[in-house]
Structures are given as structure tokens and as C-alpha cells.
Amino acid sequence: MHKIMVSLKNISFQYHTLEGETEALKNISFDVYEGEFVGIIGPSGCGKSTLLSIISGLLKPSTGSVEVNGKIGYMLQRDHLFEWRTIWQNVILGLEIQKILTQESKRYVEELLVKYGLREFKNYYPNQLSGGMRQRTALIRTLALKPDILLLDEAFSALDYQTRLAISDEVYKILKNEQKTAIIVTHDISEAIAMCDRIVVLSKRPAYIKRIYTISLTCDDYSPIGRRKAPEFREYFNSIWKELDIHV
């Protein structure tokens, strides 16, 4: 049996503002195993980002318990590179904050830059880079801290479709290559099926778990682009689409 990396038990969460109380999450429970990619999908504004914030410890759940076995790296909805810092200064930001900018950690980041084709751009500023390169920079900034579990919050939503396909493919390979566990929030059903081993479908706000899909695809090429060609892909898509129950 695989080791449990994240365990959520009966998580509920309310936002409190002067206008009132917003119930965002209701009784959410699931586990994430080592090396697993779990997708979280649900209607806009249902509480996906809130759930990630709770897993990362930025927010405390109103009720329920979170158990995390390992270091968490969090990728937000946009890349949020600091424009006034060079690519190098951006990727070492986390190390700098946690005061672990050692010779060794620098070497590791350097390796990541080389591995993912950004070494020549070390001294560039973010606005001199393409969207895909910025996204990779953000990923390296997260990986620099050697997290065991990655939380990706619509990390690719700001990119155009082609770049997005290429980058999600690349990120998938990078994360598998580095043997990470990942929780991936997305709006994109295809993206979720292509990248994830299991998919948690959330309801409208307040979000509860409608269903958890275990994705098993028959294909030879297990990259996201290869997985998209699997015969079962459409069935999963249709089923999740129905489950999401989106009316316009």
C-alpha cells in the first residue's frame, strides 16, 4: 500500500465578512497517496482555491482535520513572478525567505534551470520571457524548496491553448520525473483526465464531493498528450461533464 501524503477528514470552511458568512466547503474527506496526481474540478467559485489554501496551511479549516506528510509547494493561479527581480532572483525567492540559500541549494536550482531550458535566461527580467517560460520559472521557484507535494491552482489557465497543452505536458513530466505527489485544480475537464490518476468532482458552493473518479486509460504513451488519445477518454469526459452539471 502506498503511503498517505495528504489526509482530509470532514473539512468545512466558512469565510466571515461584514456582509455575512460564506460557506465555502462542506464535509470534504479524501486521501492522496504518494506519487499520485489528484485532480480537483468543480464549478467556478465553488471553493477549490480555498481547499488548496487549507491543505497548504494558509487557512485553518472551520471544522475537520488536515494531515500532511511532507513538504508542500504551492503554485498559484498566475505565475506571480516579481518583475523587479531577474529570473535567477525569482527562482531563489523561496530559499531566500526560508534562509536556506546555501551553495548546495543554489547548485540544485542551477541544475533545474539547465534541465528545463532556462539557464541562458537567468539574468533576464520576467517581462522579457514568454508565458510558457514564465510558468516554468514559477515551477522551478516552487521546486527549489524540494517539496514532496505540489498544489497547482489552475497554474496554466493564463496561457493560450497550444502553450497550455505543451506546458501541462512538460510540467507533468517534470513532476513525475522528480517523483512528486500533486493536487491539481483545474477548470478543464480534459486537462484533469490527461494529467490525473484520480479526479475529485466538487459541487457548487458550498462544495461537497459529488464523486471521485479513478482514471484508468489504456494507452502506450503515458504523457498527458498520449493519454488524451486513449479510447476511454471521451467516456470520462462525458461522465464528468454530466456530473459537473453546468447550466448557462
Binding site: 497548504s56 494558509l58 509547494g73 504551492y74 498559484l76 493561479q77 498566475r78 506571480h80 516579481f82 525567492l93 523561496g94 531566500e96 525567505i97 526560508q98 524548496l145
Partner: peptide
């Protein structure tokens, strides 16, 4: 969101100010 990013790195308030 930039500040949230720093918080995911567990930055202190002083670090949020200076960084």
C-alpha cells in the same frame, strides 16, 4: 496574490515588506 505567494513560503511580515 504576490503577498499570498510569499506566505506560501512562510514569509514573516518583515519579509513581506522588504521583499
Amino acid at each position: 496574490e504576490k503577498i499570498k505567494l510569499l506566505k506560501t513560503f512562510r514569509a514573516t511580515k518583515m519579509q513581506i515588506l522588504t521583499k
